[in-house]
Structure formats: structure tokens, C-alpha cells
Design a binder for these strands. Structure first.
Ligand SMILES: [Mn+2]
Ligand SMILES: [Mn+2]
Ligand SMILES: [Zn+2]
Ligand SMILES: [Zn+2]
Lengths: 165, 165
DNA sequence: ACATGATTGCAAACAGGTTGCAAGAACCAC
DNA sequence: GTGGTTCTTGCAACCTGTTTGCAATCATGT
């Protein structure tokens, strides 16, 4: 296994982008800088693990309707400002993405307490290329998530709700 | 990348288990051999790619209620007769599993026509082990699916419905 | 300040999936 | 075979995550 991003060794998502930079990106895409949008971006930039629409809406505290959160994340995803992840429970999760980085990475999820650990490693791109060639697929990509039981849960103290394996 | 199952080189899922063997497995788990169950198992054994509840129900043709399909797939999964897969669209898919094999494998999905290709390769288990140790997770496993555009779709003739990337 | 179109709140609609309940089988024992 | 016990099924209601139509509101360029 290697690190797919040769540019830098540190985890991308720990870099906290300034809010202004984010709203600038909105303007550049001729999107309006509204209260909900700033708030959503602000919530996302201070979280390092992916958040669900519900998570974000809760963190916003009655700032806007849940539908607005859904709509905005969809918009932000289309603009490449956030990336969508699927951690196996039915809900989509989102993480902020920096302009230099496409945000491709993986997660290790505790199936008992839903703790999420960020994983930067990935298998070498050659493998994916080989698959693509062998099956004549173009524009190939992948989704990879790990599941297990975190040390705290394994030790006994399960807490919140579980997730599927 | 290697083949995780050193036992045999051929794709597991191409082996078509006899229906009697499957119903025997039901009996051994003290489950009743009902019409819907036999029909579901029979549909699954003649498909090599994962099927959704809806797929199965459709293939059954008014043999039983959709809720019955859901309930049975859940039961069969609990018994280890089928394995659940998540191909990124909102619907769960299932494949028959042989007694010797846990059915762990991956898929390559066309994001345009939803064509599914079975993939037997996987990364070496050492990588997963290392992750587990590094983050002190127990009972670690993973889910990995590939996405791309199949040659036919790339050539132009898109057909049915798309899937997310 | 105004005009205009993007954005929002709200409620209704969807989609996959689950569940309570009464009727209908399997299966086991006679 | 007959009968009973227990598991299954059909049906409809329900649940959760997500989308959408529509009228009201607001951000932005002039
Ligand atoms: Mn992440
Ligand atoms: Mn498969
Ligand atoms: Zn945990
Ligand atoms: Zn295709």
C-alpha cells in the first residue's frame, strides 16, 4: 500500500481553509453567499470527519431548514467544494475538499460506536489501471471503507448506536 | 494485488449449487422450506451478479409479496446463505454464498448502464492487519467497489439507468 | 434604492426498507 | 392422515433519508 498523493505527507483534511476562501469559491462559481451556506461551510471546516446532512443541520441549530442543507450540499458537491462519502449506514456524509486535492481517501469505522478514523493509504494506482484495461472500463475509480471494532468498544464500554459491518 | 482466496483460482460465484443443497441448509437451520424461499434461492443460484430485493421480486413474478423477499433475504443473510453488497445506488444487493467460501469479493460497476463485473482480486491481508494494529481496531474488514464506464457505454450506446460515481 | 433571478421554508412526495397483526402454511407427533 | 404448534406470509401502515413544487425572501448588479 502506498500514499496516493505524492505531493504532501500530512492528512489533507486537517488543513483548515479560511471561511473567506470558501465563500470566494462560491462567488467564483456565481453562487450567492447566503447565511446558510456560510454556516454550513463553517461547520464543515471545523470538522475533520465526514458529517451527514442531519449532523450539519443539528450543528447549525435552527439556522435553516433541513431541505436547505440537502440542497446546498448537493450544490457544493457539484462545485467540487465538498466530497460525498458512504460509510455504510444509510446516510450520505460530506467533507470539505481543498482546491489542490480531490479529497480521495478512505475511512475506518467502528461498527459499534460509529467512531470514524481517517485513512490516507490506498493501493497503488497500477492495480486500478490493470482492472480498467482488463475489463475495458474507462474513467475508473473506487470506493473503499474499512470496518471494525475500536479499542474502547472492544474493551467493553459501548456507547452510541451501531453501524453495519 | 493478489487473490485473497488461495484455495481455488476460479470465481466462486460461478459454481451453481443444487437447489436441494440449499433447501437442506434451510432445514439444518430449522427454517421451513416454503415456496417463496425455494423460488428466491432458485433465482439467486442462476444469477452470477448481485440482485436487489426488487430484482428478485420481479424475477419471481407475483410469487410472493415484496415484504416477504425483504424478510427472507434478511433471514438468509443471517444464516450465511447469502451475502449483502452495496453498489452505491441506494439498494442492497445479494449473492448466494457457498458453505466453504464467505463470498468476500468486489465489483466493477458501470456508472452509465449499471453493468456489474465480478472482481476476485483484492489487496493483501497484511495491509488490513497493519491498519487494524495501527488504530487498535479488532475484527477488521473492508468494502471495496470500483466504478467506471464500460466499453459499450463509452462507445456511445448508453442504455438503461445510471448509477452514482 | 430597484429589478431580477437565485435561494429558502414548508409541506408533500419518494424510495428503500421494516413491522404489527391476523390468516395461512410447514412440520412434528400421534 | 389428523391436529396442533410454530413459523411464514400478505397487507397495510410506518420509518428514514432524500427530493421537489411553489410562493415568499434575499443576495447581487446596476
Ligand atoms: Mn475523511
Ligand atoms: Mn459478486
Ligand atoms: Zn467504537
Ligand atoms: Zn455501461
Amino acid at each position: 500500500m502506498n500514499n496516493p498523493c505524492g505531493q504532501h505527507q500530512h492528512p489533507h483534511r486537517l488543513i483548515q481553509q479560511p471561511l473567506d476562501e470558501l465563500t470566494d469559491r462560491l462567488r467564483r462559481h456565481s453562487r450567492r453567499v447566503t447565511g446558510p451556506r456560510q454556516a454550513i461551510l463553517d461547520v464543515l471546516r471545523r470538522h475533520q470527519t465526514p458529517m451527514s446532512n442531519r449532523d450539519i443541520h443539528a450543528a447549525l441549530g435552527q439556522m435553516c431548514d433541513l431541505a436547505t442543507v440537502y440542497r446546498n450540499l448537493h450544490t457544493l458537491e457539484g462545485m467540487g467544494l465538498v466530497r460525498r462519502f458512504d460509510l455504510g449506514d444509510g446516510a450520505a456524509r460530506f467533507e470539505l475538499v481543498t482546491p489542490e486535492d480531490d479529497g480521495h481517501h478512505h475511512h475506518l469505522v467502528c461498527t459499534r460506536c460509529s467512531l470514524v478514523v481517517e485513512i490516507d493509504d490506498c493501493f497503488p494506482p497500477e492495480f486500478e489501471q490493470a482492472l480498467a484495461q482488463r475489463h475495458r472500463f474507462a474513467r475508473i475509480s473506487h470506493r473503499l471503507e474499512f470496518f471494525g471494532v475500536c479499542s474502547r468498544c472492544e474493551a467493553g464500554e459501548s456507547r452510541p448506536g451501531p453501524v453495519e459491518a
